[in-house]
Each structure stands twice: as C-alpha cells, then as structure tokens.
C-alpha cells in the first residue's frame, strides 16, 4: 500500500516530464533522509496529505532544471514567478493525481510554493522521508515523500 502511494506521486511527476518535448526522464534509486531539516533545491511545490497516511509530499528542483523545463514547454520568460508557477503546476499534478487515486480516503491540500530553503516548513521529525531522484537532461530534481506510515 505504502509503496503504491509513493508510486502515484513518482508517476505523476514522471508523466509531467514526459509531456514536455524532452521525454527522456529517468528515476534514481530512492533513498532515505532524516527529517531534521527541510531538504530542497531552489524551488519547491508542496502538498499536504492526511488520512491513512499523514504528512507531505513535495517536488523540488534547481533553478537550471526549471529554466530548461520552461523553455521546453515553450515559455521564454524564465522569471522567478514562472519558476514558482511551474513547481506549483507540478505540485498541482501531484495533488490532482493523488485526489483521483486516493481521494476517497485521503485529504489532499492545495499546493503551496516555496523559493529556497525555508525554516517555515516543519516536517515531522519522528519520520524519515523518501527521496526519489529524477534525472532529466543533465539535471536532477526530486520527489520527497514524508508520510507517516506506521
């Protein structure tokens, strides 16, 4: 079950990348991080989850990846706002897919977007997060799943 839930999020992001002009997206092997700090790249889109599993899921990516992603989507304006919009859109995809697949038993929040690493995000420290690296072009982003599955 837990694997299935994580897979929904990973697949959403992979599908998103596959909708771009460069469909060659690869997944790295997942690894664990301690939730002592909010680990992220430059821009992050995040959704909250509650229900049988509680916590957060976020997509985080470096500026350079987002710049190329914007360009490949035909967007020439690579401003900070557009990057935030972009991670927001990915988070929206996460949220949408999660709603469609888990909607009956889960509560899925609307996405929020963050620039940089912020101390405002409080991850449940008792948990470890799963980081699933995403390789696209020469860059890497990640989906981070921080869910209490005890």
């Amino acid at each position: 079950m837990f694997e299935g839930v994580v897979k929904i999020f990973v697949d959403s992001v992979v599908n998103y990348f596959q909708s771009t002009s460069d469909k060659n997206v690869k997944l790295g092997s997942p690894y664990l991080i301690e939730n002592t700090d909010f680990t992220s790249f430059d821009f992050t889109g995040m959704i909250g989850i509650s229900g049988p599993y509680r916590g957060m899921v976020y997509f985080t990516a470096p500026k350079v990846l987002l710049t190329h992603l914007l360009l490949s989507l035909g967007e020439k304006e690579t401003s900070k706002e557009n990057m935030l919009d972009l991670v927001g859109e990915v988070a929206n995809t996460l949220s949408g897919n999660a709603r469609a697949e888990l909607g009956q038993d889960f509560m899925i929040s609307v996405p929020i977007m963050i620039e940089g690493s912020t101390s405002n995000i409080h991850l449940p420290t008792a948990l470890r997060s799963y980081v699933i690296p995403i390789y696209w072009k020469a860059y890497s982003a990640a989906v981070v799943v921080c869910l209490d599955n005890t």
Partner: peptide, 9 residues
C-alpha cells in the same frame, strides 16, 4: 483535517 498555513494538515 484543518489545513494549516504551510500546506500541512
């Protein structure tokens, strides 16, 4: 689940 300010519930 009351949604808080930082997307978490």
């Amino acid at each position: 689940n009351i949604s808080g300010d930082d997307a978490a519930y």
